[in-house]
Write a protein that binds this DNA or RNA. Structure first.
Lengths: 251, 251
DNA sequence: ACAAAAGTGTTTGGCGTACACCCATGA
DNA sequence: TCATGGGTGTACGCCAAACACTTTTGT
């Protein structure tokens, strides 16, 4: 796959890449979609190159679609990383050796790449992690258990979460991270997981309902221990309206 | 200057540029440093290319220093722009013709450039707008009177201001935009100018002093009409501390 | 003395925080 | 019946918003 890209490298923007931090939510855990390639012991963020005839945003959509099969997902550019030393000779050589990349393509590949970071919020259950070729493993990893990542990918991941936490004050979150029907406690746990701290149940309910994006369904969650919680869904129209206009209150 | 860069184009990151939105404050007006080149009727943001051996942040610092003579300035990356159509053939041809750029260099120049946007806050009186060569005019332009800009530079400028407004809720502003000694009303007008709306004097005073970054000087502004306002300066140590830790309240 | 801007304090309402009780369900 | 988690309402305190009077200075 990489060989393929490199063979057609004149069709891509040189020295530029996309990296996506894809967040999911499951088992009350924030998950990140990561890739492990056979040429490295370390995991990596899913990424890709930018075709000359594609907007960078479109290239990010492609990466996301290629890795999850999903479209129309919340996706946001958050930062661009371009330190000279983010490119590591030792790492590049490993990749070049593994794929037996010709030297001219290797030169292209080994130059400093500036990478544009995007983060996405996706439905864990709908996303189907997809490999490209046999040399990869693609998996959801608990955010708390993320191991060492290649290059500066850890820094990119951290910055993504930092941005998400900040933007939680400016927009509603949940539409792409939760199934269509969900309970308030589930939504609360999502917020708590992203923020990394506990919130008060009662205050959370008041605040989240005050936004006016929730529809209380005439239905309760079944097969659960203890009292059955009510099910809700998002009022997509209002949700999108608030996404645009923004919140004014923070958490 | 551009010819020079293009002649050494192998020393620069291809297809990548930096654009800086440099804000100043004067006469109760938000100013933006813009450049007008002889080959276009339109103004442009100051920008530059990224040397292969320089971090992108460093390249932004270079642009800023080159245009204002200032160092150690507040400078922040806010977004990266990479639509395919942000490159305009008609515009590129104008430039190529004006500088009589050789065709191979012209090809390099005409490709789609992804540009990384930075915004800076500088002291209007200390910054000395500097041209590069005789084909440019560099001037402070009132933000309210910004004319049409080349390519997508208007979009970049708008996004910069939007980001600044947002970040005003997260950090103190003023250290680099005001002279060392200033009055509270001056600081308030800065905030009002950035936000584009009026604030209440008394509430502003309470809020801004509560942050704990101001030092009240035993000195009043002289030669002013009406009651002489008190002078203040920033407690740089606390100011920097708050910059790092962040505010929690918005405007 | 008058106008215009600066300095100061108080009131009020709303939101965030803290907190207690009841309810439903599975074990 | 007991433990666990869900649902609901209230009281308090702080901060933001609204607002009026006094002070200073130039004209």
């Amino acid at each position: 796959m990489l060989r393929n890209t490199l063979a057609n490298r004149e069709k891509y923007q040189p020295g530029l890449s996309i990296d996506c931090v894809i967040f999911g939510f499951h088992d009350n855990q924030l998950k990140v979609l990561l890739i492990k390639t056979k040429y490295s012991e370390q995991w990596a963020l899913p990424g890709g190159f930018v075709p000359l005839n594609e907007d960078i945003d479109q290239a990010a959509v492609s990466v996301l679609h290629g890795r999850t099969g999903l479209n129309g997902i919340f996706l946001r550019q958050f930062a661009t990383f371009g330190a000279v030393k983010r490119s590591q000779e030792s790492f590049n050589n490993k990749v070049i050796k593994f794929y037996d990349i010709p030297s001219d393509a290797g030169k292209w590949y080994s130059s400093r790449f500036v990478t544009i970071g995007y983060y996405a919020l996706v439905d864990f259950l709908q996303a189907v992690p997809q490999t490209e070729g046999k040399n990869e493993i693609v998996e959801w990893i608990d955010h708390n258990a993320v191991p060492d990542l290649i290059l500066d990918h850890k820094e990119i991941l951290d910055k993504a979460l930092e941005t998400l936490r900040m933007e939680l004050n400016l927009m509603p979150v949940g539409y792409n991270l939760l199934p269509e029907k969900f309970t308030i406690p589930e939504l609360q746990r999502l917020y708590e997981t992203i923020l990394g701290r506990k919130l008060d149940r009662r205050n959370f309910l008041r605040k989240i309902t005050a936004i006016g994006i929730l529809i209380k369904l005439d239905e309760k969650k079944s097969n659960v221990a203890h009292k059955a919680p009510n099910l809700y869904s998002f009022d997509k129209e209002r949700y999108d309206a608030v996404l645009k206009s923004g919140l004014n209150q923070g958490w």
